[in-house]
Structure formats: structure tokens, C-alpha cells
């Protein structure tokens, strides 16, 4: 990896489809290193699908995804190498239900590092404390509330100090304080680790507080309508009205 390289993710002409049903057509965008990019758009427009394509859980109908210079294709031999840099937090938490929280967070560490059991334990406890779950390590996912599961999923996502973090609706269903703490955590992770962060979210408050850029997906035209800083998007009169309505909860209609 070249140090001067600053583009972390490049998406070229990505078309996503389920069978014959096209979700998004010819998406093009880039994410710089250490950028926090939020993907926004109405429900059902394909935000989570885009995330799944980026992570390699779905195969693109056409088009390419690059991480730095490397082309990413879920089936290729390099895919495993690229995936090692990912941390993914799923909408529902997706914790491994047969393992305790501790084991959940420890598994990636056991798989990919040579750390001793006690070092792993300390790391796990620390990661859990970052999401406010210190002391819950011995519980099973089914013994936790939905919000806690989600935060535990986050702790697992950041277990390996990933270079690229993907969050699928991280704050949906969290109380306002946890959700605020989560925003702070995302900003801290970016600042401390230099991680590139891709977030799918609906929370306007967190969009404005964390996003460097916002990519708006439009279900009707099946394309990205714009890509830019959310504050600028609201200010700029040139912005597509749809996007401004979204970012202002429809209030810009009345202006």
C-alpha cells in the first residue's frame, strides 16, 4: 500500500440487482482515507444492499469496487486479505448466538492474532467498555436487549482495529445518550485509527454531527443524487430538492 494514496474506496459503475430486479444503476463514488461517509435515502432504496456489496456479501451485477488499488471481488483469492481490514456492524447485531459476548469479540482476535488468552481477555474487556458494556462479557446475546446486542456487535466490529468500518444503522433503536456516545465513538475511531467509515443511517442528528460526506441514493431514479457534505447540501440552493427535503425532514418545502 502506498502511503501517498488517499482514496480508500472507489466504486465504479456499480449496478446492484436481485435477479432481474435492479436496485441501483451505475453508481460511482469514492471515499477518501479517514473520511466518514454516510449513505442516506428513503427506506428500501438499497442502502443496506450497497453496504453488502461493499463488504462482499452480495455480488455486483456489473461494475467494480476497489479498495485502494486492489480490485475487490468476493470470490477472488485476494478477497480474504482485503476483508481482514474490515469491521462490519450489522443492523441487528448479528452476534453469534452460541457464544458469549466475550467469545464473540474474541473470535476475530483468536483467528487473526497470536495474542495470548489473557491479552485477548483484556482487549475484549476494553472493547466492550468502549461501547458501554463492560462487565457483560459472560452474557449470551439472547440475554441482552436489542440495543445492547447492537452495541456488542459494534465492539466485535472494532475488535481488530479495522482500517475500514461499515455500520448498518448503528443508532437505530438506541436511546439518545447511547446514540450520542456512538457518534463520539465513531469520530474517535476515525481520529485515532485513521479509519475510513461508511455508515448507513437515518438519524439526522448523527448525519450532521459525524458525516464528512453524504451519499444520497434515490429509489425512483435508481442512482445516487448527490455526494457532499450534508451541511453544504442543505445550504446549497443547487442541491436536488429531494435531498434537501430529506435532510430537513421536509421543512424546506415551506420556504
Amino acid at each position: 500500500m502506498m502511503p501517498h494514496q488517499s482514496t480508500a474506496i472507489t466504486v465504479k459503475n456499480l449496478t446492484m440487482a436481485y435477479g432481474d430486479y435492479i436496485v441501483m444503476r451505475s453508481l460511482n463514488f469514492t471515499a477518501q482515507r479517514s473520511e466518514i461517509k454516510v449513505i442516506i435515502g428513503g427506506s428500501g432504496c438499497g442502502k443496506s444492499t450497497l453496504l453488502k456489496h461493499l463488504v462482499g456479501l452480495e455480488k455486483a451485477a456489473s461494475g467494480e469496487i476497489f479498495y485502494e488499488d486492489q480490485r475487490f471481488h468476493p470470490d477472488s483469492a485476494e478477497a480474504a486479505q482485503i476483508r481482514r481490514q474490515f469491521g462490519v456492524s450489522f443492523q441487528s447485531g448479528a452476534l453469534w448466538s452460541s457464544m458469549t459476548l466475550q467469545e464473540n469479540v474474541a473470535l476475530p482476535l483468536e483467528q487473526y492474532t497470536q495474542l495470548s488468552a489473557s491479552e485477548i481477555r483484556d482487549l475484549v474487556e476494553f472493547k466492550l467498555s468502549l461501547v458501554g458494556l463492560a462487565g457483560f462479557g459472560h452474557r449470551y446475546p439472547s440475554e441482552l436487549s436489542g440495543g445492547m446486542q447492537k452495541r456488542a456487535g459494534l465492539a466485535r466490529a472494532i475488535a481488530l482495529d479495522p482500517k475500514i468500518l461499515f455500520f448498518d444503522e448503528p443508532s437505530a433503536g438506541l436511546d439518545p445518550l447511547s446514540s450520542r456516545r456512538l457518534d463520539d465513538l465513531i469520530l474517535e475511531l476515525r481520529d485515532a485509527l485513521g479509519a475510513t467509515v461508511i455508515v448507513v443511517t437515518h438519524e439526522l442528528a448523527s448525519i450532521f454531527s459525524i458525516a464528512d460526506t453524504a451519499l444520497f441514493l434515490d429509489a425512483e431514479s435508481k442512482t445516487a443524487l448527490c455526494d457532499g457534505n450534508p451541511n453544504d447540501l442543505v445550504e446549497d440552493a443547487q442541491t436536488e430538492p429531494k435531498v434537501r427535503r430529506f435532510l430537513t425532514r421536509g421543512d424546506s418545502d415551506n420556504h
Binding site: V55, L57, R84, V88, F90, W96, Y112, R156
Partner: peptide, 9 residues
């Protein structure tokens, strides 16, 4: 959960 495994490689 299977997706989560895959996403960790």
C-alpha cells in the same frame, strides 16, 4: 450470523 462470519473473512 453467517454474514458476520464471512465479513470477518
Amino acid at each position: 450470523e453467517v454474514d458476520a462470519l464471512t465479513s470477518f473473512g
